[in-house]
Design a binder for these strands. Structure first.
Lengths: 231, 231, 231, 231
DNA sequence: GATGAATGAGGATTCATTCAT
DNA sequence: CATGAATGAATCCTCATTCAT
């Protein structure tokens, strides 16, 4: 038994915590940085604040990341992890109406990604892409391509089942993407800073988007007079 | 007639040039500011650089605009707010099918605003709103409120004419806004920095969005088998 | 008769006014500058504001005074004019009690100098003397020396008439000067900028100062119990 | 005992020096600031110069004081406000004649405050109050109010003991304040810049002021013929 | 002479980054 | 490894002064 074991327990504990923390450092810093970058953007986030939120000193931050810019890149890379495998499986397993599938997907997307902190990454990338081209490339490859691929397959399923019709499949995917990106951008910008508050209830927004997306704005010959319409 | 009138024309000319320059200054500065704000964002744009690009010195900028923020507001007024009058008139004067109106509006919106540099302002505001609440509030008031108002009236027109049906008018406007904002965000972020290039042809994008928006994804009972569908 | 005489009268008038003004320019500038220097001090007074208050353009100011510093010096020199002749005469002519003379002088000093704008010069000189040694020298020679001389003679008169007694004549004069300078300084500083307001009623202040100056704080053996004393 | 404790003393020493410097910084900065504020006034003192005189860089100054104004307030607290406790105690403890108390106080005031650099602060505030209302308000609260309060209590003590008599207590305090302020103003303006030198010996000035203040200028019936009077 | 547009040095303050401990 | 004191380049904005007209 080493002598250290004979030292007062507190010291032991603290030592252990310190060890644990030491290895967790980069992660804690990335966490803190994610929060702050999402909240304030790259330029307005102060290195010291990141360090403070991670519970370390300013100097320590630069021990792990050589510059604020590298920290930023690490934050984005760290958080762009493809959860696409899981999503693909779920998609493959889905049975039923394509309209329901789309309704389900949008809702699930919001609950699992949009509503959480992960959407902050998307906001971050889009907002700062211009000043960080390699991040943009990274994101494109890791998120956009697989994401658009999944969405395309969803539309194809609908078409194959004779439930959807689209004129231009490559661009139809944007009819699903645009509403999601818009919601994310608003959630992280105007919704949190306009004095009167920018009114945007996500659930209601998604419900409205999906229905319009499925059925369109145009009244159809056989349609019932649409009870809910507010003229 | 005083002798001065008989002096060489040059004097007159130079005077004229000076006058012209003086009057042109604000415009030149606004041009330069627009370029830089769009390129670098609000925070990262340095006042001095705006001045330099307009061919004047630092001090001159502040002769015309009391602060960077006021300069930005002037850019917004010059490039966006000022156009609503014209748009409203056009809307009021429009005759014909509401679907055509929507097609026309989207196209015209792109040609006049979206395609130009002005759309960069929208991207900027959404990206940096959180750090500049004053700017966000200003933009909300000057652009978002009148813009959404116009869109709402377009939908109401369609409903009134029995051509559109919407369940939730307040949120249906986002079905028009989201595609536009998405296009703007992409145009000024991923589209200009992803190496391979983010493939997004605006015209085709808008055409696709509008048709889906009008008719929805779902195949309708009486629909012909949709020749254009690419399975 | 020159043709100009046939021009509309207005022109004539304006021309005349302009002529008149042209010669008055330096004076108007000095007036404006006096006001502003007294109000804001040297550093905080902007040349442009002086020009604006004098009704001319910025450039014109520099036509008459080569720099802000020279303007400042001119302002002080211009306003340090000895009205001492008049005061001396009045002093020589005064008949009566020396205590009354002192009461009279203090009151008259306030009415004629202290209360007016002239006191601003004194405040100005004392406040800025350190940065303008030649102004200080000028003021010393033109104002302080003759002023102290007059005051000394007043005390001497009292002593000669057996009405005053002083131990140290050279310094006794400060017993008259200090209250005046203090009042001036306060009038132009704390009195006009402390939020709650610095309470200082000049008339009451002078009355109090004079009486204490004449009779002292110490109760005298034969004194009546001083009805007005507020314990 | 860990081995580190056995390391050469040098490390310890250097550490100590660094600690000492860190703790000394605010003091060094306050010293430098006091010097410069007194010498040049508030507006004309450049932050960088304060830092330089304290032997640190611009940034370091703002590490200890968030703004130039806060630096100034700290200077005031350090040099003036902090002393009232001590003064009050001394006043409470004073035994003896009120005239002696007044003589003692004036002398002590000069020795401890007036003669030192701290009095320059008072001069500065009065000179620049109008441009820095916050500073004026702060000074009023921290220095003027407690100062006048102490003086009022001194007069009240004299009255209570039947030694002083005043007609208007609220204004009688100015009979003590005015001489002190005058001396301060002169010391920091004309006295240090008039070429020939403005002749003002503080000790003699105070002695003269106090005696006149106590006994007044007027000869009293029972007075001896005032040996010292120089006619 | 008069104008006022233009200049650019200067000043307060911020913050990423370094480095001695 | 960790710290946090120190740095100084960078940035917004001001204003005395110049000079072409």
């Amino acid at each position: 038994m080493p002598f250290s074991k004979l030292l007062p327990v507190r010291s032991d504990d603290v030592q252990a915590k310190r060890e644990r923390r030491k290895e967790a450092r980069p992660g804690e810093l990335l966490e803190a940085a994610l929060d702050l970058f999402v909240e304030k953007g790259f330029a307005a986030t102060r290195s010291e604040e990141v360090a403070a939120r991670a519970g370390v000193s300013k100097g320590t931050l630069f021990l792990y990341f050589p510059s604020k810019e590298e920290l930023f890149k690490a934050v984005v890379r760290e958080n762009i992890s493809g959860r696409f495998k899981e999503w693909n499986d779920e998609f493959e397993a889905f049975e039923g109406d394509s309209a329901d599938m789309l309704r389900y997907c949008m809702k699930v997307w919001w609950d699992r990604l949009g509503a959480g902190r992960a959407s902050g990454i998307t906001k971050l990338v889009i907002s700062e892409a211009r000043n960080f081209p390699d991040i943009a490339a990274f994101y494109q490859e890791e998120v956009i391509v697989p994401g658009q691929d999944l969405i395309r397959r969803m539309l194809q399923r609908g078409i194959a089942r004779g439930e959807f019709q689209v004129k231009d499949l490559d661009y139809a995917i944007y009819s699903l993407i645009a509403p999601m990106i818009f919601l994310i951008m608003m959630k992280h910008s105007l919704c949190v800073c306009v004095p009167g508050g920018y009114p945007l209830d996500p659930e209601r927004y998604i419900a409205s988007q999906v229905e319009t997306l499925l059925h369109g704005l145009c009244k159809r010959p056989g349609d019932v007079p649409a009870a809910g319409t507010k003229p």
